[in-house]
Design a protein around this nucleic acid. Sequence first.
DNA 1: ATATTGATTAGAGCGTACTCTAAGTCAAGT
DNA 2: ACTTGACTTAGAGTACGCTCTAATCAATAT
Lengths: 118, 118
Amino acid sequence: MLTIGETAELLGISAHTLRYYEKEQIVVPHREPGGDRRYDESHIGWLKFVIKLKETQMPIAAIRKYAALAAEGDHTSEDRLNLLAEHKRSIRAQLETLQAADEMLERKIAGYRTFIHS
Amino acid sequence: MLTIGETAELLGISAHTLRYYEKEQIVVPHREPGGDRRYDESHIGWLKFVIKLKETQMPIAAIRKYAALAAEGDHTSEDRLNLLAEHKRSIRAQLETLQAADEMLERKIAGYRTFIHS
DNA sequence: ATATTGATTAGAGCGTACTCTAAGTCAAGT
DNA sequence: ACTTGACTTAGAGTACGCTCTAATCAATAT
């Protein structure tokens, strides 16, 4: 059971951000008698997953929706599957955009090299 | 020579955005005697390039920097090359992140399918 | 006993990239 | 002459995702 500071450190995000995620209903940690937050293994695993989703531009709102479904129970698993499948399609689209841009830049850079060394 | 509305239409962005890009020194169109903006082929080509850069998360500030170098003349081409090469590395990093996430989601989705059909 | 450290809260503020509003000008069509 | 529509400006507002502030509390270290 980690404190907010330890959890932030471990995940490479700020304690501010963890409180923000709680306000957004993305993670709801346990509380100590004094009111301090405590994050257990399941919170950490979930947060690592959230961070992966964020890295791929999934909006907070969509993550919150997914979290809400997961909190509702097993009967929402099909909805969650659909959400993830849709996000996977968005990742594929991003990959294509990036690959096209990468090639475009490659050509542009080659052009510059020719120009500079001429 | 296109008006701001025609240019916006052609590029799939808003006239507001074109004025914003001008304020940010990213494109400086010609002006009619009455003050209306006019975009020529070179503006359009440059804007298409800008849009490609934006699609790959290049910040407006970096694009502005690149535009400023280009406006300065041929002697900045090496700096521009470096800017593009660096951005290309960022695209590669994004590609790796997305590929990892894609695989992670593939596994997660496969897990859901097993669960749902059990 | 005091100081430091790390936590709490509500709510304000920030950076990015737009996006829109208000008030107005101007040219063309009926 | 009037309307329509596209344009102009400065500046305000929006959405997102944090990020920080202020005031406070509680446990530990000296």
